[in-house]
Design a protein around this nucleic acid. Sequence first.
DNA 1: CGGCCTTCCTGTCAGAGTGACAGTAAGTCT
DNA 2: AGACTTACTGTCACTCTGACAGGAAGGCCG
Lengths: 242, 242
Amino acid sequence: MSDDHWVPPTVLLAVDLVILTLRESRLQVLLIERGIEPYQGALALPGGFLGHEKEDLVTAAHRELAEEAGLGPDQLHLEQLGLYGAPDRDPRGRVVSAAYLAIAPRLPEPVAGTDASQACWTPVTQALSGNAQLAFDHEQILTDGIDRAREKLERSALATAFCGPTFTIAELQDVYEAVWGVRLDPRNFYRKVQSVDGFIVSAGPSRKAEGGRPARLFRPGPRTTLHPPMTRPQGQADKETA
Amino acid sequence: MSDDHWVPPTVLLAVDLVILTLRESRLQVLLIERGIEPYQGALALPGGFLGHEKEDLVTAAHRELAEEAGLGPDQLHLEQLGLYGAPDRDPRGRVVSAAYLAIAPRLPEPVAGTDASQACWTPVTQALSGNAQLAFDHEQILTDGIDRAREKLERSALATAFCGPTFTIAELQDVYEAVWGVRLDPRNFYRKVQSVDGFIVSAGPSRKAEGGRPARLFRPGPRTTLHPPMTRPQGQADKETA
DNA sequence: CGGCCTTCCTGTCAGAGTGACAGTAAGTCT
DNA sequence: AGACTTACTGTCACTCTGACAGGAAGGCCG
């Protein structure tokens, strides 16, 4: 804002992904083992630089999603998480990273990634336990992503993104219990979920028996925001997105 | 990820600010009249490019806040809003903008901006009415910022950021009414606000009479997240941060 | 000084929502 | 046929909320 010939600095723009899913009733995140420096051999969130000068951010996120996780844009929730741009976060230079949060339904065991052979699902408790050191500031990004997911489960229909096209109420409850890390009363959950107008709609009195009485199937409803919200028990945690 | 000599594209990184405050019981945003192309003469959110290669994002936001609005880092809420990086949003080239949301308490009338003489507070209803065309995608950014503020008022103590160091419950209610655009019952608001543990704490049985019975003064409490949350009446809006 | 206005604060009460149970329905397994 | 498993329905007390009435504490007027 002073010189006429002043030129603003340029930066490298990367896209990093927090891809969450539910496996074995546990919240898991997709991590890859880095093949190149820096942080070679360490675990990291999938991601990469912008493909070309004109590539859209969401497009880049979807491209990485396909390259590194083999996930198509269908049946998948994707939202921007935030921008991580500390000057010293990447030793190679000034790299700012747009983090995206993706929620994937249960999918076949192998990741089937074309690009990253070392991609693997990891329980988030393990990824954040401190034992597995993550590259860059990815631990912070992952924490923020999980926090976001936890919050959005309260007020939005995000939970259905963890499920397939149809699901039972018990499966939906599994999502809430795994992401929030709490136990919920099935009866009250049943009542609550059905009382929220437009959250889930019946998908035929079908069956999917497995040891007990067959459960009814549901599909995601038209509502994306929940009124009243789902309430998380004793969530007294005092955190901020400052 | 294919060529050894491939070099990722660089982008220009800008910081834009949504600065909200309460004036005359209305939610207002700081806009400036652009002095240079593109969009010369149009209204825009304050902002600018990164100062130098090593500047931190939050630092840049604070710098713009001081330059364009004369606001110091004290007594001011600042949080990241999102990244806006559509390839064609700036005709000059690939510019991605990190948007920040700032909440300022009531302050003396003149903006006292050193840099932008054309800065002026504008009611958000007017800024978004469509009459005042905003530059770039700033209308979208502003909308997202207001949405964020509305949501955070429910679950966080953000409302106190609109007030001075001490305030009355009626003033706090003004904040909620202006940001949410609704009328609230003073009696119920009084009860609710005091029942949320740690939201506000008494600041002496002081007075500030103005026509009626003097009101008690309060200060922001230690809590940043509210349990239970403040409930917004009939907020049936179906919006998503997709 | 005593009304009368203003605004602030305290109660009350019915209805909705929630947490903690018991109990019934509908399948599979042995 | 029973036992077992899971799915679904009901009930009941408690809390929270929204919609009021009414008293407290100042200024302003005559």
